[in-house]
Simulated assay, not measured.
Amino acid sequence: MHENTRNAGDEDDGEVTREIAWPAGSVGLAALDTEDAELLHGWRSDPVTAHQLGLWPRPLTALRERIERDIEDDDRDDFLVVVPEGPPGGLPIGYAALTGQSIVDGAAQVEVVIAAEHRGRGHGAAALDALVDLAFGELPMYRLTAETHTDNSPALAVLAASGFVEEGVRRAACLHRGRRHDLAVFSLLRPEWEGLDRPRAWDA
């Protein structure tokens, strides 16, 4: 299934079209492009997101340059998370990434961020499931990992619901706002994904 989407606020002239590569539940994943830097900058500047990811303010120009650099990086794939509501073609509500990809080891790390105003609706879980299906259904991955603060209850719940298993805690592994934070480490293996009783992204 494919459909075209565009950013909120785009005009008909010079319209930006997007192909949803992976529809899954309430969302779809569309490839991230440099023109999306302003969206990401706004989401990453949200205080809650910044705390959860351990981010600090960065210039928009630096983020745009990073996106341009990452597009050429074969070790990662970055996506916008899009819902089919709002403006014509859908509404970007967050981003998802598959980073640190090692084809030799069959390993990668997952990352999902949903904009503050769209949290609590199941979109994060749908985006994570879509990303996992990409890693195991189209790429030769065997092991996926994820990390989050041990006090990030929503993220812990989403990871568990998607089949990830908590492996342990990296104690005092993150310095943010003058405090040390523990990081919970999760993983999902291919046989565990194969045993999940849910539709795959390509069945949506």
Rank of each mutant, 00 (worst) to 15 (best):
L29T: 09
E167A: 08
A37I: 03
V132W: 09
P59V: 09
T99D: 10
L32V: 09
G28I: 02
I114E: 04
G14K: 04
S187A: 15
E65Q: 13
D77G: 04
N152D: 08
A135D: 04
A155E: 03
T148W: 03
P154T: 09
D133H: 13
L39G: 06
V169P: 13
W202R: 13
E3C: 14
A108G: 05
F186C: 03
E15Y: 01
P92L: 01
A201L: 07
P191H: 12
R179D: 15
E15I: 04
G195Y: 06
L29M: 11
R64P: 02
E11M: 00
R69Y: 06
L63H: 14
L40F: 14
G9C: 02
H41D: 10
I71C: 00
V16H: 06
G163R: 06
F79E: 06
G137C: 10
G90D: 11
E167W: 10
P87E: 07
I93W: 08
L32K: 11
D203P: 07
A160I: 03
A31Y: 07
G120K: 13
E167S: 03
D133G: 08
G168F: 09
E167I: 03
V132R: 03
T150S: 14
T148C: 15
R121C: 04
C174V: 07
V132N: 06
F79V: 04
R190P: 02
A107H: 15
A107L: 09
G9S: 01
A161W: 06
C174L: 12
V113F: 07
V185D: 02
L183C: 00
E72I: 07
L131E: 02
E68I: 07
R76E: 14
H41F: 13
D203V: 02
V169L: 04
T61H: 10
D74N: 14
E166G: 00
I93P: 08
L159F: 15
A201I: 09
G28L: 03
G89C: 09
D73F: 12
A30W: 00
P140A: 13
R177V: 06
A30M: 00
I67P: 12
N7Y: 01
E3V: 15
A146N: 12
P23D: 08
P57S: 02
L144Y: 15
G120C: 05
G86M: 00
H118G: 00
G163D: 00
E65R: 04
A107Y: 13
S45Y: 04
D133P: 05
A125D: 03
R121N: 01
A130R: 05
N7T: 02
E117H: 12
H51G: 11
L32E: 12
H123E: 02
D129K: 05
H51I: 11
Q52W: 14
T61I: 03
R44D: 06
V113P: 03
N7D: 05
S26W: 00
G122T: 09
G54M: 12
N4I: 07
A108D: 08
S102A: 05
F136G: 08
P84C: 05
T49P: 10
G54Q: 03
A127Q: 12
W193G: 07
D46G: 04
T34E: 13
W56M: 05
D46R: 05
G54A: 10
P154S: 08
I71N: 03
E138G: 14
I114N: 05
A30Q: 00
V165P: 06
A96M: 10
T17Q: 08
